Simulated scan of single mutants.
Amino acid sequence: MSHTAHIPSHRKPRRSASKLALRAGVAGGVLGTIAVAGAAGPANAEPVTETIEMPTLGSLAAGSNLASAVAASAEASQQEALDQSLQTLEQAALKKASQDAKKAKAEADRKAAAERAEKARLKAEKERKEAEEAAERASRTSTRTQLATNSSSNDGGSSSSSSSSSSSDSGSSASDSGSRTQAPTGSAASIVAFARAQVGDAYISGGTGPNAWDCSGLVQAAYRAAGIDLPRISYQQSSMGSSVSLGNLQPGDILYWGSRSGSYHVAIYVGGGKYVGAQNSSTGVVERSLDWDPPSGAVRIL
């Protein structure tokens, strides 16, 4: 067996080429020193037969390429892992965005359906009110026509009555509060017809029609329908004409509450022991019995 010692060339793949070259240079220096020492020694000294096998340039290049390949592989693996992580995050973000979009669409659909239902309800409510108002107007028109017809027939009957009959009727009309069945005639009929046609209208302070009134506004409009102008304020209306007792009322008389010169409420006597007045915001325009709220007095304008 040869006495030559062989140095194995196995090296770690991550050692850089510069380190390998440095080590090769150091080894070369050592060999040079050994050779010089051998030449300066005794002539009969045995020659140095031990040799050291140094790595070749090819092996150095192969090691460098292997280190580069390992580094490139590690970088590729790291990039692949990063790409997979980014892809996972993108998929999660897309999934969440899709879920949020579905929720937003469902909420928008719900709100749209609720708005449509509310619009339909409001439309139906409006149509119902319009139908009720139309029916009420038709009823008032019918009432007004019927009262006007009755007034005309009563006027014709009274003009053909005999003087004795007229005298008897006068006595009966003087006690209208007792019989309470006298039908209005002439201007009184127009006043009563107008007042009754407004029953059901709303009450509003300062209201003068056509669908909302206060007490004096209704009285003023009713008398205007008969061609008679009255002041606007209740105490001014009750100060006009002549005072009459509540036991001698005739249709068309103005009823008042409070003192005659300081009344706070007025209404129109329509016969049969009843009156029509714009009472308050809760009741609106109503027809009531005198017993429901007895007035303080009455005046006669006609």
Results as ranks from 00 to 15, higher is better:
Ser282Cys: 01
Gln250Gly: 03
Gln250Glu: 13
Gln237Met: 09
Gly271Glu: 14
Pro251Ser: 09
Val285Ser: 10
Gln250Phe: 12
Ala278Val: 08
Gly271His: 08
Ser239Val: 14
Gly284His: 11
Gln237Arg: 02
Ser242Phe: 12
Gly258Ser: 02
Ser281Ala: 13
Ser238Phe: 04
Arg300His: 07
Gly271Ile: 06
Ser243Met: 07
Asp293Val: 11
Val266Lys: 03
Gly271Met: 06
Gly241Ile: 09
Tyr256Val: 00
Ile233Cys: 03
Val299Arg: 04
Ser261Met: 02
Gly252Trp: 08
Val285Asn: 09
Asp291Met: 11
Val244Tyr: 12
Pro251Lys: 07
Trp257Thr: 05
Gly297Asp: 12
Leu249Asp: 06
Asp293Ala: 15
Tyr235Met: 01
Gly273Ala: 07
Leu255Ser: 03
Arg288Asn: 15
Leu290Asn: 12
Pro294His: 10
His265Lys: 00
Gln236Asn: 13
Ser238Met: 05
Tyr264Trp: 10
Gly258Met: 01
Leu290Tyr: 11
Ile268Met: 11
Gly284Thr: 02
Gln236Met: 12
Asp253Met: 03
Asp293Pro: 00
Glu287His: 05
Asn280His: 05
Leu246Asp: 04
Ile268Tyr: 11
Gly262Trp: 13
Ala298Asn: 06
Ser261Cys: 01
Ile254Cys: 10
Ser259Val: 00
Asp253Arg: 01
Gln250Met: 10
Ile233His: 08
Tyr269Glu: 03
Gly277Val: 07
Tyr264Arg: 00
Gly277Glu: 14
Gly272Ile: 09
Met240Pro: 01
Leu249Thr: 02
Val270Met: 11
Pro294Met: 12
Pro251Thr: 04
Ser238Arg: 01
Tyr256Phe: 15
Leu255Asp: 09
Gly258Cys: 03
Ser245Tyr: 11
Asp253Cys: 04
His265Cys: 03
Ser243Phe: 05
Ile268Asp: 11
Pro251Glu: 09
Gly247Ala: 15
Val286Asn: 11
Asn248Val: 05
Gly272Arg: 08
Trp292Phe: 08
Ile268Asn: 09
Ala267Trp: 13
Gly277Trp: 09
His265Thr: 06
Gly247Thr: 15
Ser263Asp: 05
Ile254Ala: 11
Ser282Lys: 03
Gly262His: 13
Ser239His: 10
Asp253Gln: 03
Leu290Pro: 12
Ser296Met: 01
Glu287Ile: 13
Gln279Lys: 12
Glu287Val: 13
Ser243Glu: 15
Asp293Cys: 09
Val270Pro: 10
Trp292Asn: 09
Gly297Leu: 07
Gln237Gly: 07
Asp253Tyr: 13
Gly271Val: 03
Asp293Phe: 13
Leu249Pro: 00
Gln237Ala: 09
Ser259Ala: 14
Ser281Met: 02
